[in-house]
Simulated scan of single mutants.
Amino acid sequence: MLGHYPHAGGQALRYGLACVLLLPLAGRGGQAVVGPLRALSGWQWGRLAALAAVGMVGFNLAVLAAERSAEPAVPGVFVGCAPVVVAVIVPALDGRRPAPVVVAAALSVAAGAFTVQGWGRTDTAGLLWSVGALAGEVGFAVLAVPVLRPLGPRLLSAAACGLAAVESALLGLVLDGGGWLRAPDGGETVALLWQAAVVTVVGFVCWYVGVQRIGAERATLFSGLIPVSAAATAPLVGTGGYGPAQAAGSLLVALGVALGSNLVGSAAPVQDHAGDEGRVVVHGDVAAAGEAHQPGGGDRTLGPDTLTGQQHSVAGAPADGDGHIGDVVREHDAAPGREGGLEPGRLAHGPRLGDHRLG
């Protein structure tokens, strides 16, 4: 429905409207929005701008450019590899080892997405733009990690949409000149409203809440459900069929999501390997920034037999935010004050605090 509407102008309208809808949801008053944004450092604002440019505007541009010379399945297959890339790059950025279970699950999801979509005709340009789409999908998760905790899912989504609207408008002026924006017709208006209100407002907030609760590595596994959903609904709208290949691919995706997100096995999002975040207690339910903590079904009380004789509980570090006893543990031989040496607004991994929250 938007195939003939100026791309950059359409994205500017979509993200601008989404920002307007998100801001009232981001806080109960102006200070609840302005305060956290003013507290961001220049580096964090840079991450937000990169998130909007790479994960939102750039991703959409790359997909459209790829489909000029490649069948839609080609960028779809590349984007389907995002769980594998995220499962490796997020731990590497945090100085820890990838969780073997999550990597195996990501490979299953990627294989399932490929099986569902198949492959298609393409050329070199189509492949390169598809790689760009993959980079955008990965950036949408990875670049948000340092700013999700101080902003929370709703304010993060609002700020990113506002920046994406400005970036789309500037891109439209450069690429399309005076024709970058026009009044949409009836069908285009409906499509833009759907993109803004449902795909962006609802979709982005749900996505970042998921990232906040189970981490980017596990949350990105669920992107494999996109081609499965498309294949399952294709017969209903007359755009394709659902055959044995789609069924087999759907099973691979479902297996990977269930295994990697702890739907099979442990109910709480704890570390998968003894060497990963070995001195961090991870909650199954984490409150968003500025919201009261509501215990969820995934929380488990830290029992007296959880700590070894060489460890003891200490109060939460100043940057930890929630102040729960037992969130941080340290060994007797750790350097004094080490447990509080965190960068404000950031969680760490391995010897530091677990960044998940999100991933």
Rank of each mutant, 00 (worst) to 15 (best):
G238H: 03
L255I: 13
G177M: 05
G187L: 10
A159F: 11
Y242P: 04
A196V: 07
G210M: 13
G178P: 01
L171D: 00
G162R: 13
T233G: 00
E217T: 09
G215S: 10
P235M: 06
D185P: 01
L173N: 03
E188I: 09
C161G: 09
G215A: 06
A164P: 04
G178C: 06
I226K: 07
G256V: 05
W194Y: 15
G240D: 06
P235C: 00
T200L: 13
E188H: 01
V228T: 09
L171P: 03
Q195A: 11
G178S: 07
A219W: 03
A159Y: 14
T233R: 02
Q212G: 14
V237A: 12
Y208A: 13
W207C: 09
T233M: 04
L163E: 04
E188G: 08
E167C: 11
G224I: 00
G215P: 06
W207K: 02
S168Y: 00
C206N: 12
V190G: 10
A183R: 00
L251F: 11
L175F: 14
G162H: 14
D185S: 02
G203M: 02
S250Y: 00
A254G: 06
P184N: 07
R213C: 03
V166S: 02
R218K: 09
A234R: 08
G249Y: 10
G215F: 02
L192K: 07
S168D: 03
A230E: 05
S223A: 13
P227D: 04
A191I: 05
G238S: 12
L193G: 11
L181I: 11
A164L: 10
G187M: 14
A248R: 03
A234K: 12
G224D: 01
G240L: 14
S250H: 02
P244K: 09
A219D: 10
V237T: 15
S250I: 04
A254R: 08
A219P: 14
V211M: 15
L252W: 07
P227N: 08
L225C: 10
I214P: 13
V198A: 12
G241Y: 07
G177V: 02
A159V: 11
V257K: 06
A248H: 03
G256N: 00
D185L: 04
P227Y: 03
G241W: 11
V205Q: 11
V166H: 00
A183V: 12
L163P: 07
G243K: 05
V174A: 15
L255P: 01
G238Q: 09
V228L: 12
G179Q: 03
L175P: 08
P227F: 03
A164K: 04
L221A: 07
A234E: 09
A191Q: 11
W207L: 14
Q195S: 08
L173R: 01
Q195N: 10
V166C: 01
G238L: 05
W207N: 13
L193H: 04
V202L: 15
G179N: 09
I226P: 00
P227S: 01
V253N: 00
Q212M: 10
R213G: 06
A197Y: 05
G256W: 07
